[in-house]
């Protein structure tokens, strides 16, 4: 059994705690948060040790890994402390607030040779996995265009809130919602290297963006559109989709289905000419414990198994998370240039 701890007990942190708590390969040694309300619930109802100071916890507890789900501005110091102590680290997305800090952490983790993962959980949804595989087979021929979208009802009224309404702390739709889409585009289609026509729009929020629209060009020259809005209450929950067009067809993918249109049949894939739909019921990654979606368990199973089996991870490395941060920084820089030019 390996020993782990969770730092940061907000929505994602509690979810990670429950999933790790249910994993028989792991001894959940401790949790850490600054909220006395949350910690006293753990003291009262669970056997898990609690800390309000992460340095103290890292010093006192012998740990194989930590899961960090604090507000983004704390990622850098906490990840650094964990890595320096030789602890495998899972960090929530977005990875870092500045590229400089992120680069330092990537260099450190590579030097230490530790397992590292960022919480871009969409890569553990069966439909997006299948989309990635199909594109890698070249089934669409030369790519001509893509659209990456996410919509949801996070901020639908005018009122101030938590750190998510502070841009300097990693708040806003670009960091929170668009980062997921940028990361999917980057790992499934290609790495964005250029952006233009970026619009960062505040709708209800003051100080941060509620919607992000931009044109992106990828490293292979493919161009496409990013369209993300977290103030759209016509969606019951966050809904993310990727559409990719090529000379031989089109793929439309979300968390529930992958729609495939091919101009000619692809018998080796068992795909007809015209439309085929693949459903999540056939593509979901099986898990032993389910909370809110297979992907949340599957990503932590992958992290734990990477530690136990000493595998080199393919999905959601710090380096991949850092690249998404670089694209975010590029979009912010471009939007500032728009304002002043």
């Amino acid at each position: 059994m390996i020993r782990g701890a969770i730092i940061g007990l907000g929505k994602m942190g509690l979810s990670h705690t429950a999933i790790i708590g249910a994993n028989p390969k792991v001894k959940l040694a401790a949790v850490c948060d600054t909220s006395s309300l949350v910690l006293s619930a753990f003291k009262k109802f669970s056997q898990i040790k609690t800390y309000s100071d992460y340095s103290k916890m890292l010093d006192e507890e012998p740990l194989d890994f930590v899961v960090i789900a604090t507000p983004t501005k704390f990622h850098y110091p906490i990840v650094k402390s964990a890595l320096e102590r030789g602890i495998h680290t899972f960090c929530e997305k977005p990875f870092s607030l500045t590229v400089k800090e992120g680069e330092e952490l990537v260099a450190l983790v590579n030097q230490k040779g530790l397992v590292n993962q960022v919480g871009y959980h969409n890569h553990f949804i069966g439909t997006f996995r299948e989309l990635r595989r199909l594109i890698q087979t070249g089934i669409l021929g030369e790519l001509t265009h893509f659209t990456g979208e996410a919509y949801g009802p996070v901020v639908t009224r005018e009122k101030g809130g938590t750190w998510r309404s502070k841009p300097e702390e990693g708040g806003g739709c670009l960091y929170d919602y668009a980062s997921h889409v940028l990361n999917l585009i980057q790992e499934i289609i290609g790495r964005p290297v250029k952006s233009s026509g970026i619009l960062l729009k505040s709708i209800y929020s003051k100080g941060v963006d509620d919607a992000v629209y931009a044109l992106l060009t990828l490293n292979d020259g493919t161009s496409g559109v990013l369209s993300v809005n977290w103030s759209d209450e016509t969606y019951r929950k966050m809904s993310t989709s990727i559409t990719v067009m090529g000379k031989k067809g089109k793929l439309i993918c979300d968390a529930t289905e992958l729609k495939i249109y091919l101009k000619e049949a692809a018998p080796h894939e068992g795909l007809d000419k015209g439309w085929t739909t693949k459903y999540i019921t056939d593509l979901a990654i099986p898990v032993d414990f389910y909370l809110r979606g297979e992907e949340y368990s599957a990503q932590l199973d992958y992290f734990v198994d990477s530690i136990i089996n000493r595998n080199k991870a393919e999905y959601n490395t710090f380096e991949q998370g850092l690249y998404t941060d670089k694209v975010i920084e590029m979009l912010i820089d471009n939007s500032k240039n728009n304002h002043h030019g």
């Binding site: 509690l14 979810s15 999933i19 790790i20 708590g21 249910a22 109802f45 669970s46 389910y290 909370l291």
Partner: peptide
């Protein structure tokens, strides 16, 4: 289920 499974994973069975 979201709440049941959260409590289950956190092993707060007294709840």
């Amino acid at each position: 289920n979201v709440l049941v499974d959260m409590i289950l994973g956190l092993k707060m069975f007294e709840v």
